[in-house]
Nucleic acid binder design. Sequence first.
DNA 1: TTAAATTTGCTAACACTGTTAGGTAAAATA
DNA 2: TATTTTACCTAACAGTGTTAGCAAATTTAA
Lengths: 200, 200
Amino acid sequence: MGITERKKRHKEELHASILAAAWQLVVEDGWQALSIRKIADAIEYSVPVIYDHFENKEAILLELTKQGFRKLNHDLLEAIELAADPESQIEGMAYAYWRFAFNNKAYYQVMYGLGIPSCETVNQISELSTFSGLILQPIRELISKGQHPDTDPFLKLHTYWSMLHGLISINMMGAQQDKEELNQMVLKDFIRGFISGLKA
Amino acid sequence: MGITERKKRHKEELHASILAAAWQLVVEDGWQALSIRKIADAIEYSVPVIYDHFENKEAILLELTKQGFRKLNHDLLEAIELAADPESQIEGMAYAYWRFAFNNKAYYQVMYGLGIPSCETVNQISELSTFSGLILQPIRELISKGQHPDTDPFLKLHTYWSMLHGLISINMMGAQQDKEELNQMVLKDFIRGFISGLKA
DNA sequence: TTAAATTTGCTAACACTGTTAGGTAAAATA
DNA sequence: TATTTTACCTAACAGTGTTAGCAAATTTAA
């Protein structure tokens, strides 16, 4: 009897349509503004139906996160296949990752739980310029003494800050195992590279 | 007449106590769980009183963010003063930044709007191992061909991922000016450094 | 074919959230 | 003493995630 199959198919369609509606809402207004009632409205079903398909709101966002990683993995694989040697594979993947993030901002922000303070908010933080100034000072000094005094110090500040922030935020969400000294090594490695980059 | 002064003082105390209560709540349960009513309960005033001191909830979190940056700036300055030359200043600041982040996680997460997917959530994303695998492969190859075949590939994966993520997330919240090619340069710079680090 | 059991979907509620309108009582001013 | 200002609160509005319980439709069993 194909009736149960039709029902099963319908159920799967519903499941998919919930995710589709959720995704559209996330793209439109960001994952912070996603709500169960908005999804219910979009799929033209009542609220509790959604809970027949997902345990809670977090489960929906988790599914979107997984979708994001699947797409990212797809892009990375493509980059790998396009490159001949491991070196250009690593290079290509970095660009692919970068492109993925900016072509799929909504995905990226869900995947990493990024709240993203808005531009207006950032500009209200006057302390940020003090922060930049503190770091820029020794960078400028080192650049002026180095081989390439025309290096852009802002670019270097950007690199420095990004590396630190990346290291920390990946760590904070990570499995947090006994990686204390491992991280110290990465950090040390990075600083050495950064400084030698300023000089040479 | 000292009465108006007393009143003014009282108002300032109230302002401070709101921030103090908010901060305590953020430390206890994370900035996501902060609520105006909880603050009102803590300071033993009714809800609207808080709106006499802050325009909205975001303004309170913004103030905490500023506090965070002030403390960070303080720590960085301390690191600067402790170091003799620009080189060790840059090094010292990196460690200070790192320590600040992990000794003040609540601050750091407010400052950067970090939603922080929990460990349980992260472990539910099976796609992450595919992701790691994709990147580990060429890294392993390059290490084995390089001068130090005993290098830990996970450490390198960690570095690679952190740098990319840091670059992206700092960029996404940033003023987003015409830094398109600037970022390309940072990225290129990083990749070159990373690859040469794998070989040598 | 009828009776019981299951599925499907909904309404309505609970306990929260940010935010604000409007009122009361106390204090300060005229 | 009368009026205005200040300080503060209650109660509401509109939204949130989540769930209990009910009604109708459908499938299964007798």
